[in-house]
Simulated scan of single mutants.
Amino acid sequence: MFEITRSTYYAHRLRRRSPGVERIRLRSRVNELFTQNRSAAGSRSIVSMMQEDGEQIGRFKVRGLMRELGLISKQPGSHAYKKATVERPDIPNTLNREFDVPEPNKVWCGDITYIWAQGKWHYLAVVMDLCARRIVCWALSGNPDADLVTKALDMAYEQRGKPQGLLFHSDQGSQYGSRHFRQRLWRYRISQSMSRRGNCYDNSPMERVFRSLKTEWIPSVGYLSDIEARLGNRAKAAQVVGNFNNLIMMRVRETATAELLTKQLPKVDIASISPMSSATDSSDPHGRTAFTSSSMDRITTTSVPLLEPAHIVALPKGQAFALLEGGTLWKLRMPLPIHEADADMPTDLRTLAEQMRSQYSNDTPTWHGETDDHG
């Protein structure tokens, strides 16, 4: 009927049932790259990454492999925005979509977005340098007020070494038009520019940042806590939250200092057993019972401090009390340094931190509130 031989037909069916080893390898690589990019990479991005690794493959083949694996990029679709031309009379649109800035610290952009964390909305204010499209600083708060955007501006201004001749561009949000924020711009000698009302294209670099943040980084169900929202990593957030319940108490000289530590400790109930006995004479002179007696144990509880200030003052050298996991008290014994020079012992805390940072590895990228890059 189709003018093909029987062997050709069965060979075609066999190829469809059992994919080759090479195709299985490519499918595994595509799935790995898709997972590493937080399910945000499409066929174009995966083709570019595979070709950079020396893989000879095209976009249509990658698209077919993604279809076989059921991988769908979570990039949002297009959206129709209305065109607006109304400027604010006192703050014009000075930038006028001139987003190509040749030098750093000449034009900054800012905007606010909302993030669901810990069962409520949190608000993120971001400051970006248009030269390299890099985030300078950000601030997170539970209130979308002028203090939030001012805090982000203060951090960026200090981080970049108090630059001069700046232009700050934002939308017509009430926070950026408030007296508090405009006074801070005046103090820093920063000029202000605002988008036209309801025109997101006038501040499109910031809109693009928030789109990538919400589609590629933030979980679809939000964050469990505001700390996780700040760090962008659930494992690190759990570690930080656990540290909040830990308290290390070393030897101090002053009793007042020791009281500051012991006041943070919970009180414990001490149970004590007191034996009690009693005897009563019989009121019947003709009865067989001359008296009655009884004995019992009375249990009483007393609330006492977990540690007294004197316990911390009297600690021997090299020992400390540690309250771990919110309620378990431990006594630590730390090795004392020897007088001879030790090549393996760090000279100071900075050197120790650098050694720990060089040995620490984590494949998950993390957001930082501040960056040292000036470009």
Rank of each mutant, 00 (worst) to 15 (best):
S274E: 01
T289C: 12
K267N: 14
D269E: 09
F291W: 13
A256S: 15
A290R: 14
G287N: 12
T292I: 11
S282Y: 08
K263I: 03
A290E: 14
R288A: 13
V268A: 02
L265F: 12
S294E: 13
E259S: 05
A271D: 00
Q264M: 13
L265V: 10
E259W: 01
S293M: 11
S294N: 12
I270C: 04
L260M: 05
K263G: 09
V268R: 08
P266R: 03
L265Q: 07
L260A: 08
I299V: 15
F291T: 05
P266K: 03
S293W: 07
K267Y: 08
D281A: 14
L265A: 10
K267Q: 08
V268K: 07
I299E: 01
S278E: 11
S294Y: 04
R288H: 13
A271F: 02
K263F: 04
L265Y: 07
D297W: 00
P275W: 02
L261P: 00
I273E: 09
M296S: 13
F291N: 09
F291R: 15
A256P: 01
R288W: 09
A271K: 07
V268D: 00
T280P: 03
K267R: 13
S293Q: 14
S278D: 13
S294I: 09
S277R: 12
S282K: 04
A279H: 04
T280S: 09
D284R: 06
S272R: 05
S283H: 08
S282D: 14
P266N: 03
T289W: 07
S278Q: 08
I273R: 03
Q264K: 15
L260Y: 03
K267I: 01
H286Q: 14
A256C: 11
M276I: 11
L261T: 00
R288Y: 08
F291Q: 10
L265G: 04
I270L: 11
L260T: 11
S283E: 09
S283C: 09
P275R: 02
D297K: 00
L261N: 04
K263Q: 14
M296K: 12
I270H: 02
I273D: 01
Q264E: 15
S272V: 02
I270P: 00
T292V: 14
S294Q: 14
H286R: 11
A279P: 01
D297M: 01
I299Q: 02
K267W: 05
M276W: 02
S293K: 11
S283F: 10
A258Y: 02
A290K: 15
R298K: 10
A258T: 04
A271G: 06
K267A: 06
T257A: 12
Q264T: 02
S293F: 07
S278N: 08
P275E: 09
T289F: 08
A279D: 05
T292S: 14
T292P: 01
T292K: 10
D297H: 02
P275S: 03
M296R: 15
V268P: 01
A290W: 10
D269I: 00
T262N: 03
L261D: 10
